[in-house]
């Protein structure tokens, strides 16, 4: 067996080491690229989830409830509620005037924002003969929130005392009838005969649609 000279052996030994380092660097670079691609895919997925949620939120807010008794065109089903002053009232007693019946939870952000927005429109609605009945969903959907009176004072301010704005708490049966899906807020526009003409939520983002639905009910002025 012929012996290699020392310099040739050293050169041969350095070549595999250099190749190993180059391969290692290339492998790590490929791994990092894959990681970046993974991060990009994750980012796209997060954005897609956000988009889906936004679309679901938008589409659900414009669909009518599934129950026949509360869908658009149906006569609003009767049910009882207790006003802030402690008096018992019923949905059926609201006939004779176009009425906005709005079910809220007092701890919900959009309900707070909607009440503030409605406070700015109550004068306009009242001038067109529309009354507003804002009802806390039964037991605030089982959670502890401020009372409807405190809620009204905090978010509607002085407008909460408007005689055309009634505050109260819905009964459990009324809640189940008008909010079968358990949404935190939902509103119904009833015409003078008690028929449901418009259903939507959240109020703060659909105010223009509501005002547009009010117009045909009131014509040039009061109903």
């Amino acid at each position: 067996m012929s012996r290699r000279s020392a310099p040739n052996r050293a050169t041969t030994a350095r070549r595999p080491a250099k190749n190993r380092r180059a391969n290692e660097a290339a492998r790590q670079a490929a791994a990092h690229r894959r990681r970046l691609i993974g991060m990009g895919v994750a980012g796209v997925l997060v954005a897609a989830i956000i988009a889906v949620v936004a679309v679901v939120a938008s589409s659900k807010s414009t669909s009518a409830p599934t129950t026949r008794s509360t869908g658009v065109g149906a006569i609003a089903r009767n049910g009882s509620f207790t006003t802030a002053s402690g008096a018992q009232a019923a949905i059926g007693s609201l006939r004779g005037h176009p009425t906005l019946v709005w079910f809220v939870t007092t701890w919900c952000s959009s309900c707070q924002a909607g009440t503030q927005a409605l406070a700015g429109e109550i004068g306009h609605l009242a001038s067109r003969g529309v009354r507003v009945v804002e009802l806390e969903l039964a037991d605030d959907l089982g959670q502890s929130g401020p009372s409807i009176t405190a809620f009204a004072r905090q978010y509607a301010g002085a407008a909460s005392a408007n005689p055309d704005w009634t505050w109260g708490v819905a009964s459990s049966r009324l809640t189940a009838t008008y909010d079968p899906a358990g949404e935190l807020e939902i509103y119904y526009l009833l015409d003078a005969s008690g028929r449901v003409t418009y259903v939507n939520s959240p109020l703060v983002s659909t105010m223009s649609g509501l005002l547009g639905a009010v117009a045909p009910l009131t014509g040039n002025g009061h109903a």
Partner: peptide
């Protein structure tokens, strides 16, 4: 059930709200 649905929804959303 309707009552359970309302309670469950309220509990979950209340947690995230508060």
């Amino acid at each position: 059930s309707a009552a359970a649905r309302l309670r469950t929804t309220g509990t979950i959303t209340y947690f995230f709200a508060t």
